[in-house]
Amino acid sequence: MNDDPLLARLAGLAVEPPDGLLDRIAARWIAVPSPIGELSVAWTARGVAYVHQGDGFSGAFRARFGRPLMPATRPPAGLVPALRTGRLSGLALDLEELGEFQRDVLRAVQAVPRGEVRPYAWIAARAGRPGAVRAVGTALARNPVPLLVPCHRVTRSDGALGEYVFGPAAKQRLLLAEGVDLGRLDGLAKERVFYLASDTTGVVCFPTCHNARRITPAHRHGFRTLGAARTAGYRPCRTCRPDLQAA
């Protein structure tokens, strides 16, 4: 049969797929260190898709992404520093599986600088849905890439830290590790102070804004609401944008 030239040529039309084909189908995973202990991280050809803590990683990934998962020998370049600092520095994320609202929310969260916190309402406004404060909480609870999209920097407007994908204790550890003075924030919240203003600049900020941290005690004024600060003649900081949330 192989003497037939046509059959031999047809058999010659069989080809091996390109090497990259498997990466379009399967995700890779690896366990890496982080400030809150070992994490399992999965990524696709597009970028990092999933960060998981504790047991049940492969089952959770399968339920969520429906994609095969294969072990990798090394993490993608920049992953470990990004987990440590919360700065991506070019590390790509794959947020394709998410809905538009959740992607907008995560993009808004990426605007919160290391060492600072913002209220849920601020994220909702920045994501273009000022009324959707509870939906922001839900979206963050399902953040597939915690630490890389630093949802631990989103806290309740009453000063409480609020929930976290990996539990409130991990949220506290992460914020302390990046230099947020939680004791001071708690003290301010007990005095019902959620905004700090400077009478030398005439600007009012969120307490963790780097501009607020520079105000000397003699010139610092605390406010419970942004409205009260405005009435007192202060304008919202253009860096931390406390005016963004519906007030």
Binding site: L13, A14, V15, E16, P17, I25, P68
Partner: peptide, 23 residues
């Protein structure tokens, strides 16, 4: 194991699946 099984499945049949798809 579903994921290790998939790796075997892919390794065993990637050529026939891709060739058929291409032709």
């Amino acid at each position: 194991d579903l994921d290790e099984g998939f790796a075997e499945l892919y390794g065993a049949h990637r050529g026939v699946v891709f060739s058929t798809a291409l032709r």
